[in-house]
Amino acid sequence: MGRLSLFQRIFLAGTLAMVVGPFLWILMNSFKYQIDIYQGTWIFEPTLTSYMDVLFSRRSQFTNNLWNSVVVASISTIVALTLGTLCAYSLHRFRWSKWVSGGILAWLLLFHMIPVITLVGPWYLIFRHLGLYDTLTGLVLTHVTINLPMTIWLMMAFFAEVPKEMEEAAQVDGCTRVQAFTLVVLPVVVPGLIAAGVLSFVFSWNEFAIALNLTSRATATVPVGVAKFAQDFEIQHSQMAAASIVATIPAILIMFFGQRFVVRGLTLGSVK
């Protein structure tokens, strides 16, 4: 399109500085000794102490948190993706009565509106009964539940993009229903699977409110670990900075890989 006016250039430059600035500042502070942070110096001798402390000190549970997060985020993503994709396909493809499909979709919408924190209480009680309180399994189940609506919407949008004739061609070509789904439709919606997978993973990796309340020391995830640095009686600022950086890296890596798919998914979802 046209060229940017001076005002637009300043606006854009300012926004970019506001977005990137905090990252750089935190990154800088994560390489400082605590004392340099307190003095607010801009010129200092970089050190990895904070990172060593966060990752390897005996007091720190952070490596454990990282492992828990990897397990919870991966498994909940795989499960949500599997269940969500199957459910979306079934709703999209087969003639369910309005009561079934409408009911499910309405419930997804309602559920999506409910603040998660309101459900943590009941989950807590249910998991205590089932012996799932303070287990990774319990946490995975909640993350699956939270991620299902988004997965189902996104996949339904992608399935709607698959020409109906392609599936019919598969049927005429000799596919059973399951084969038409697995051999023809699924490969075509791989971008959707990636988009939904990335969003699920990032969400689960970042999720705090549920993990805070349904886990304890051994099962805590990264966000709970990060919060811990800020909550202890003596706030460890340099570790807080280092932990924030470490916690952010996986999501950013995954997003770099999946960005264009996610953008496409959001477009499909919002343009309709």
Partner: peptide
Amino acid sequence: VPPVAIGS
């Protein structure tokens, strides 16, 4: 960024 990390 994890909201918690944003907070800190």
